[in-house]
Amino acid sequence: MSRIDVRKTAKLYINGAFVRSESGRVYSVEHADGSAVVRVSQGSRKDLRDAVRGSRSAQTGWAERTGYNRGQILYRIAEIMEERRDTFVDRLLTGGMSDDAAEAELDASVDRLVWYAGWADKFAQVFGNLNPVAGPFFNISAPEPTGLVGVVLADASPLLGIVSRVAPIIVSGNTAVVVVGGPRPLASIALTEVLATADVPAGVVNIITGDAQELGPVLANHMDVNALDIVGVEPTLAAAMTRDAAENVKRVTVEAEPQFMDEAAQSPYIIAKFVETKTVWHPKGV
């Protein structure tokens, strides 16, 4: 007797839970060779609202963890991704990549996570400083996470793109709400299942598949989002989002044509884009 297909529903990842879109919408993702179709939840405005709420409540706790601990957790994500190699490669092939490209994409993603994991307890030394001042004071500048970062990945590299943007954001203690657009988000969806089992606290990373055109502006307008990372979004929309983000003076970065395989796509200066510098004065001597 032939078996009935048991297919997995691709869901959104919001506040540590896998949920269907509140709107009930789905969209079809076709395998590159046309062999099958997967239905993926299409996130809505209210899904984003829920994600921001969860992400906000996770942020303080995540930032309060030691850098060392955050580094361990990033490393754990890398470990589990490596273990699930086959799944990721399969999703990337489904998306139309060649064998070599898929392997290279996975290698680069895992390596990048490990690389940023190493920065977790080191970036503060690099971007912080003991400032020379005239007077009997220590004057110390130290980076602190900006808070809640909205990431819009319009049609980016399906796995390396999300890893390259999310890792430097969360490593310093930010939380992220990520909108993944594009026609083939399957590898990003596989990533949600890794995040859920890699000791990443609920709400630290939220991944919502859907239409960047629809969801980007919601994130840009949300007053509880502190920074916006606009990646691979077409210029008109990126400009509109940048304008909307000004309402509560979000920190905005725009990367129009990201080249994630480039060396420049991996840099401590990307961590620095999502931190604020706090300077404190402390009396010196007796």
């Binding site: 307008n221 949300h222 007053m223 509880d224 509560n248």
Partner: peptide
């Protein structure tokens, strides 16, 4: 306003 709000404000 059509903007989701934050307790910060």
């Amino acid at each position: 306003t059509g903007r989701y709000q934050s307790p910060d404000y």
